[in-house]
Amino acid sequence: MQVLLFTHSVMRWLVLGSLGWSFYKAYVAYTNNKPFTKTLNKLRHWTATVAHIQLMIGIILYSQSQTVKALFAGLSGNGHITDPVFFGVIHITLMLLAVVLVTLGSAMAKRKSSDSEKSKTMYIWFGVALLVIFVAIPWPFSPLAQRPYIRPL
């Protein structure tokens, strides 16, 4: 379980990096009316792939998590946002939403006819997904739930 937690923690940075870079490159391509290159298309594809891998690891962790099991056992606290509530409801819901946004944005961008439409679609959908992910991550400074930037093994 520790290896999966570590992997999920490290993959967070790959998801954020690829999504942030994809968002930036699509925005630059759109605002500067540049072509939707093969490189940008590969970036679109691999960003969605990394997000899906992270989701699969997260679902495995969710199904095995003692914190989530505590929520379903009724040990979630006194109405405040506790770790069981955050991870059992908020984190999983927002992350699923974010991966759906990445998936839809990637699929829609791939199917657009013009380069400008592809770039615009990618930067809008990926940008919204990035915002959702930033809210859903248990940052060390978060008032909802705190975890280190990288979990130790």
Results as ranks from 00 to 15, higher is better:
residue 2 Q to F: 05
residue 3 V to F: 15
residue 4 L to T: 05
residue 5 L to W: 04
residue 7 T to I: 03
residue 7 T to Q: 04
residue 7 T to A: 14
residue 8 H to F: 00
residue 9 S to R: 08
residue 10 V to W: 05
residue 11 M to H: 02
residue 12 R to F: 08
residue 12 R to C: 08
residue 12 R to D: 04
residue 13 W to F: 07
residue 19 L to Q: 00
residue 20 G to F: 05
residue 22 S to Q: 12
residue 23 F to T: 13
residue 24 Y to N: 02
residue 28 V to A: 10
residue 28 V to T: 11
residue 29 A to K: 06
residue 29 A to Y: 05
residue 29 A to S: 13
residue 30 Y to R: 11
residue 31 T to K: 14
residue 32 N to C: 04
residue 33 N to D: 14
residue 34 K to P: 01
residue 37 T to K: 00
residue 38 K to Y: 06
residue 38 K to S: 15
residue 39 T to M: 14
residue 40 L to G: 02
residue 41 N to H: 13
residue 42 K to M: 15
residue 43 L to E: 07
residue 43 L to D: 02
residue 44 R to V: 10
residue 45 H to P: 05
residue 50 V to T: 09
residue 51 A to V: 08
residue 53 I to V: 14
residue 54 Q to V: 07
residue 56 M to V: 12
residue 57 I to S: 08
residue 58 G to A: 15
residue 58 G to Q: 14
residue 58 G to W: 10
residue 59 I to Q: 12
residue 60 I to H: 06
residue 61 L to M: 12
residue 61 L to C: 00
residue 62 Y to T: 10
residue 62 Y to R: 07
residue 63 S to N: 11
residue 63 S to K: 11
residue 65 S to D: 09
residue 65 S to Q: 10
residue 65 S to I: 07
residue 68 V to R: 10
residue 69 K to I: 09
residue 69 K to T: 07
residue 69 K to R: 15
residue 71 L to N: 10
residue 72 F to Y: 15
residue 74 G to M: 07
residue 74 G to W: 04
residue 74 G to Q: 06
residue 76 S to G: 14
residue 77 G to Y: 06
residue 79 G to V: 13
residue 81 I to C: 03
residue 82 T to M: 02
residue 84 P to T: 00
residue 85 V to W: 01
residue 86 F to T: 09
residue 87 F to W: 05
residue 88 G to E: 13
residue 89 V to E: 03
residue 89 V to R: 10
residue 90 I to S: 01
residue 91 H to C: 09
residue 91 H to L: 06
residue 92 I to T: 07
residue 93 T to K: 05
residue 93 T to S: 14
residue 95 M to C: 02
residue 97 L to S: 12
residue 99 V to I: 12
residue 100 V to M: 11
residue 100 V to D: 09
residue 100 V to T: 12
residue 101 L to E: 05
residue 103 T to E: 08
residue 103 T to C: 09
residue 103 T to W: 06
residue 104 L to M: 11
residue 106 S to C: 12
residue 107 A to Q: 14
residue 108 M to D: 09
residue 109 A to P: 01
residue 109 A to W: 07
residue 109 A to T: 05
residue 110 K to T: 11
residue 111 R to T: 12
residue 111 R to V: 05
residue 111 R to K: 15
residue 111 R to E: 13
residue 113 S to H: 14
residue 114 S to R: 04
residue 114 S to Q: 05
residue 115 D to F: 02
residue 115 D to E: 11
residue 116 S to H: 12
residue 117 E to W: 03
residue 118 K to Q: 11
residue 118 K to N: 08
residue 118 K to G: 01
residue 119 S to W: 08
residue 120 K to A: 14
residue 120 K to D: 11
residue 122 M to F: 14
residue 123 Y to T: 15
residue 124 I to E: 03
residue 124 I to D: 04
residue 124 I to Q: 10
residue 126 F to W: 13
residue 128 V to G: 02
residue 128 V to T: 02
residue 129 A to N: 04
residue 130 L to E: 08
residue 131 L to Y: 01
residue 133 I to F: 01
residue 133 I to Q: 03
residue 134 F to R: 00
residue 134 F to Q: 09
residue 138 P to H: 09
residue 139 W to Y: 10
residue 140 P to V: 02
residue 141 F to H: 13
residue 142 S to H: 09
residue 142 S to A: 10
residue 143 P to N: 06
residue 144 L to I: 05
residue 144 L to T: 06
residue 146 Q to F: 03
residue 146 Q to Y: 01
residue 146 Q to L: 00
residue 146 Q to T: 12
residue 148 P to V: 02
residue 148 P to T: 03
residue 149 Y to F: 15
residue 150 I to F: 09
residue 150 I to Y: 06
residue 151 R to F: 00
residue 153 L to K: 13
